[in-house]
Amino acid sequence: MAKKSIKIRAKAKKGVTTVKSLMSHPMETGLRKNSKTGKLIPAHFIQEVVATHVHDGGETVRMTTHWSGGVSKNPYLSFKFNGGKKGDKITLTWTDNKGGSESATAKIK
């Protein structure tokens, strides 16, 4: 897997934290054919993304998503939650259908 495959921007404003993220992943559905060989390209997509808010009081899961290969290549995910402040952290962890996994953490600005 490519390095730095998750990019996160998190911003707290008026008590609401907005998290935007971009993950590098081929998101192959398993239904697409290789244009040269005519063979199906095996499914390879992120199935789960868990977003955890790391704060003074501990850790809180703010969002859990389950995806199919119907999410675009190099997937984008954005969500909001009440709470969170500058300096807190957001950790995103994805797991794909082949068991691959990656995680990244960013500070809330």
Binding site: A2, K4, S5, K7, R9, K20, S21, L22, S24, K73, N74, Y76, S78
Partner: peptide, 12 residues
Amino acid sequence: EEFPPYEPMIEE
């Protein structure tokens, strides 16, 4: 462009 897919490539 809100979170453009080329951003990781800039970093690369």
